[in-house]
Design a protein around this nucleic acid. Structure first.
Length: 302
DNA sequence: CACTCGTGGAC
DNA sequence: TGTCCAAGAGT
């Protein structure tokens, strides 16, 4: 029998980091609107999509605008997808806006306008992967799921594995570890999920972790080993200047800031390299983020 | 699996 | 100042 089963049967387990981290969360959790008692599953879903690879501070104002304008999925679904792209503003990765619009359409058509509570049905929605499906099921519906994001992966890497950073890509061992720590009671499991994420976001950060404020410092394996530096393969540093991504961003910003369709010259002026510019524009069209009109102009999609 | 896909703040 | 990185998903 695997050792973790024995651990699970002991309740409460003194060595488990769950209780100290739950207690820490009770005192230090940020007061975020998608965690409020009146937050809807739709509000939670929108927040999770927006928060993908994007800091909380930048999401907050856009999330408020979206929820005020589209308090329910049906409202967004009734709009042209270009309105979602425009309202996305400068959050980055605008394909998320497109997929969120597609998800709203699917929720309206397939689920009667209500965000599904079922994990598999969430996973089937556009733009929702393993993490987001588990997060929505857990945070919005109080279910018991292993919610494994970049914060939790880092917390577990340090606390349990004794490494400064988790592996580059998620491993099965990480999933098993996360599942082994999950409290049995669904409501407690859901609170644990958000608490572990919050600890990673506020204390067990990637750079300059605030170990003095950590509720489980005394049992942190990374700490016990003397905080050895990361020794794995070099982690890819993302370059940006001069890339297609930067070019796409410039082109789409022109369309976002315009009130209607724009002519080709308005796009040409924002990027000097014509070959790269055309490639990026074609890609935006292929992605459905830009609509080429019959008259030669360009617009956000309808 | 490795790669693409935005943006801006912190150090 | 350049580097790092922030609640990932899709291909």
């Amino acid at each position: 029998m695997p050792q973790w089963r024995l651990v699970m049967q002991t309740s409460p387990n003194p060595a488990s980091p769950v209780q100290p981290i739950l207690a820490w969360y009770d005192r230090h959790a940020r007061d975020l609107p998608w965690r409020a008692p009146d937050a809807t599953p739709w509000g939670v879903l929108v927040s999770e999509i927006m928060l993908q690879q994007t800091p909380v501070a930048r999401v907050l104002p856009v999330w408020r605008e979206w929820l005020a304008r589209w308090p329910e999925p049906a409202g967004l679904a009734a709009e042209p997808s270009g309105e979602a792209v425009r309202a996305w503003g400068r959050l980055g990765y605008p394909r998320r806006a497109l997929r969120l619009h597609q998800a709203a359409v699917a929720i309206t058509q397939r689920h009667g306008g209500a965000v599904p509570a079922d994990h598999a049905e969430l996973l089937a929605l556009p733009g929702i992967g393993a993490y987001t499906a588990a997060a929505v099921a857990s945070f919005a519906f109080g279910q018991r799921h292993a919610v494994l994001d970049t914060n939790v992966r880092r917390v577990l890497a340090r606390l349990v594995s004794g490494a400064e950073y988790p592996p580059k890509s998620q491993t099965r061992a990480e999933v098993r570890l996360a599942e082994s720590l999950l409290p049995d009671d669904p409501a407690t499991a859901a609170r644990w999920a958000v608490a572990a994420m919050e600890l990673g976001a506020l204390v067990c950060t990637a750079r300059s972790p605030r170990c003095a404020d950590c509720p489980v410092l005394d049992r942190c394996e990374w700490q016990l080993r003397g905080r050895p530096a990361y020794d794995g393969p070099p982690r890819k540093g993302q370059t940006y200047a001069g890339t297609d991504r930067q070019c796409r961003g410039r082109l789409l910003a022109v369309l976002r800031d315009a009130h209607g369709p724009v002519g080709k010259p308005a796009l040409d002026v924002v990027w000097a390299d014509a070959v790269q510019r055309e490639r990026a524009l074609d890609a935006l069209v292929a992605d459905g983020l830009v609509d080429p009109l019959d008259d030669g102009r360009y617009a956000l999609p309808s």
